[in-house]
Amino acid sequence: MRSWEEDPLLRAEHLTMRFGGLTAVDDVSFAVGRHDITALIGPNGAGKTTVFNCITGFYKPTEGMIELRQPDGQIFRLEQLDDHDINARARVARTFQNIRLFQGMTVLENLMVAQHNVLMRASGLTVGAILGLGGFRQAEKDAVDFARYWLDRVNLTARADEPAGELPYGDQRRLEIARAMCTRPLLLCLDEPAAGLNARESDALNELLYSIRKQDDIAILLIEHDMSVVMRISDHVVVLDYGRLIADGTTAEARNDPRVIAAYLGVPDEELPVVEREVGL
């Protein structure tokens, strides 16, 4: 039994998603370890983002179930929750392939919006705060401190009062991660976080992700195309191709799996029969 199968944070079973006649995800099952960085990889159109959208509630899967078990033993069936509850109650946060920051709001405001539910309760559903009751002031101060902590972590403190839309691309990526972290998640889902980053930014991102796993002990599930990132930081790799699961194992296993190589690199015509035999087609 693999480490991520013993006490998984998230378990997807027989996940299937159809759009009309198209089956984007076909009977996919995998687990996400509580202390792991899990990479979801596969060629373009393999169904990775669809799996993500099912987990984070933007799609309702056609079949299958997604179960999240919190450390206190509470179990959430994500396919039955509303999308905002997946973040608010099941505590799954995500970023987007094409960054979705609140561009006209400042960096700090972005991080404050992420703490909406905490602040909303502290503000006594707004009424208390207007009347000056309760500990809203303190809660707001704590929220700013928490935001500042994450700004420090992603190295954006100096730009806290700039509109998010004016940040350079790499900073926007990191800010989106910080914003997701400000919702205090148990599982952080990152959709191609390294896309469009240069080598240096990519390294910094690796470090950040590593520290999130190590220091904050938060599980990460990421979609990534950049194999160097995947191989360096992930503990566990799940490979999809044409909506099906074709490999599920450690990085080393995935690297050597002929099906993965075939799916990724394609194979020259003359070697095709050999590979097909190996793959078992």
Binding site: I86, N87, Q103, T183
Partner: peptide, 13 residues
């Protein structure tokens, strides 16, 4: 106003 989808991903109803 800025982005509804992002709001939902942040747990805002």
């Amino acid at each position: 106003r800025e982005d509804q989808i992002a709001c939902r991903s942040l747990g805002i109803n």
